[in-house]
Write a protein that binds this DNA or RNA. Structure first.
Lengths: 352, 352
DNA sequence: CGGTTTAGTTCAATCGTTTGAACAATTTAT
DNA sequence: ATAAATTGTTCAAACGATTGAACTAAACCG
């Protein structure tokens, strides 16, 4: 049967993929010599190395990753799990993770959870199955149960979290200081003479949104502004949430004079409602968002926001992984890298 | 040395990953029986299957993908190459490719070319190295030389192109009819009584933009409108390109009364300039973009655009791959799937 | 010239799974 | 009762690359 197959191959002129064995045959060497030559093993003569590489080129040889990964027990693949791909923040993080890891010979497998916990579990399952050497992830909003992530830790491969998931697991984390970012926003709004600042918040079960809320509260206290619970509303932070909540705020007996939304999409929804009601932004009500989505710069008025330093976060997350993989023995305490975010003041909060 | 390692493992309580061999030992079977049991081989008794699965569960067994892929000569991995990840179109296509392929047991490896030909080549290289079973790609704008893609074909694995790359290689393609889409836009603008329609075009070396240009030209002819070469300007279609070109158009002795931009970002740039010049959109100058980026719906005025049916394109691309992989022998003529795009009329071109 | 290095290579086992062939045990058909 | 078919399992050879140990020459040293 084999002979027949080979005959077919010959007749049809299909080149079967060449292996080190083929190279060995051509040169009258053993496969192991070829393997060593290709890997620049010191015990192989330069003459042989050159000859092997030449033949490899001619035969269009491509090493079989599966075989070497199996033997070496290392796939050089890193899994990345992100909630969704349509935000600028994540695509920028990805780009930078990829850049750093590619340089070190790793490839990344990107998977999206679409903010679904179930999808996230599936993703972990299939990444582990693919034998990735590590996982870099940002948790879905929905994710509360962390059993699956424990599974990764149990496997003994590095797990790095970024943006979402701080403290939730005892693993490396890279993110901005959400508490401080909120503080910066309030400080700025106060400097613009705002006195009643509402907060369109994210759900407080997610640590980052919780931190933004407490940063908001503490900053208000610091500036001796009263905390009014009706001015703090949690939501999913989509455009429609921003709209709904802004409408509610406008219907209050005493309207706020500033709105801090914990996400840019919610800020956009709020802005739409404000414009529809002919409310002057920023003079009647000032507005600040969060994330520096591209559209914040080109809507009218442009929206002040927090830049989360996605490039840096991507780079640091990748480096954290490399660190772990290179020193697996060193059970250092978990590494929490907090990057300083930047407040970008635009028209929506810049009063004359 | 091995004994020492095992001792370490025992002492430290580190569970080494369990293999079919471990399961076999527990049950007093051979690894092959276990393998067959796990794969529901008909020749294995139900009793054994149940026992094996039970033990597998207990040992927290996870099949080693590398080993099975190596043996089976199939990785169940599909590579996807996209130009950049920050557009809604691509992230939506990805989501749908993933959905269809996951169901069939495939995982996808996403790589971004960042519109760079060199990056694209690297991506192809590493995808092939990872032994993907197929590649689904949309070409970078820069890509003219297709040597690397020929390499994929030479390997004998399926290659499916979408959006960018129609006709350029003799392979399966999924995309919308750009020519017809242009035609729809012109038809609509004519119905709005526009007489001098400018075209902010993409570079005509890319087939899709070329088709949009010829669709534009032919439609003008059909409606007996003159074709003025100064009203057709090619660019990269970024916001700043749209701005620059719109400024140029406004400085013409005779301004156009409509602008059709081959990309939404360019349309946005144009819109900004129009607003800055207090030109009424759509009544003085009507505007239509292309791609249905989310922001087109929430800027003011909202921008009319073409929806490229990203969900459908993703699904069809994935299905085209599955088709090829399931019938590798059938050298059917190449499959060109053209999806009908949809014109979404919004405020920027809807005159009262 | 015998003994020790050193360079260059081959040998053989291994990674974990799959798979056709072979074998033994049991059942069914004749 | 014997042949044939069926069932359940083991055997052994792959898949392609890697790697330490072993082996053979040639080179070097005293």
């Amino acid at each position: 049967m084999f002979n027949r197959l080979n005959k077919c191959i010959k007749i049809l002129g299909i080149k079967k993929k060449s292996t080190i064995k083929d190279i060995a045959n051509v040169l009258g060497l053993t496969p192991s010599a070829v393997s060593k030559a290709l890997n620049n093993h010191p015990r192989i003569s330069d003459k042989t190395k050159i000859a092997v590489k030449q033949v490899a080129e001619n035969l269009n040889y491509q090493p079989n990753h599966l075989a070497s990964a199996l033997r070496k027990g290392k796939s050089n693949l890193v899994g990345v799990i992100i909630p969704r791909n349509n935000s600028n923040f994540f695509s920028s993080v990805l780009e930078n993770i990829e850049e750093v890891l590619n340089k070190e010979g790793y490839n990344i497998i990107i998977t999206q959870s679409n903010e679904s916990y179930k999808k996230e579990c599936n993703n972990i399952e299939s990444l582990l199955y693919t034998q990735v050497d590590g996982i870099i992830a940002s948790l879905a909003n929905e994710t509360v149960n962390l059993e699956y992530y424990e599974k990764i830790k149990a496997k003994g491969i590095p797990l790095i979290l970024f943006d979402r998931g701080e403290n939730d697991l005892n693993v490396d984390y890279v993110g901005i200081d959400d508490y401080l970012s909120s503080h910066m926003i309030i400080e700025h709004l106060v400097s613009q003479k705002c006195k009643r600042i509402a907060h369109i918040a994210g759900f407080s079960h997610s640590r980052i949104y919780k931190n933004r809320i407490s940063g908001y509260r503490d900053a208000l206290k610091e500036y001796n502004l009263p905390i009014e619970e009706d001015l703090i509303i949690e939501s999913n932070l989509r455009i429609e949430d921003g709209r709904r909540i802004m409408e509610g705020l406008l219907n209050l007996p005493k309207r706020p004079d500033a709105v801090y939304a914990a996400g840019d999409y919610a800020a956009l929804g709020a802005l739409q409602v404000l414009k529809e009601n002919n409310i002057n932004v920023p003079n009647d009500i000032a507005l600040v968002g969060f994330s520096n989505e591209p559209f914040t710069s080109f809507v009218q008025p442009s929206i002040s926001t927090i830049d989360q330093k996605s490039e840096l976060i991507g780079k640091l997350a990748a480096e954290a992984f490399l660190n772990r993989i290179e020193n697996p023995s060193i059970k250092t305490t978990l590494n929490k890298i907090i990057v300083d975010a930047e407040l970008i003041v635009r028209d929506s909060s810049n009063r004359e």
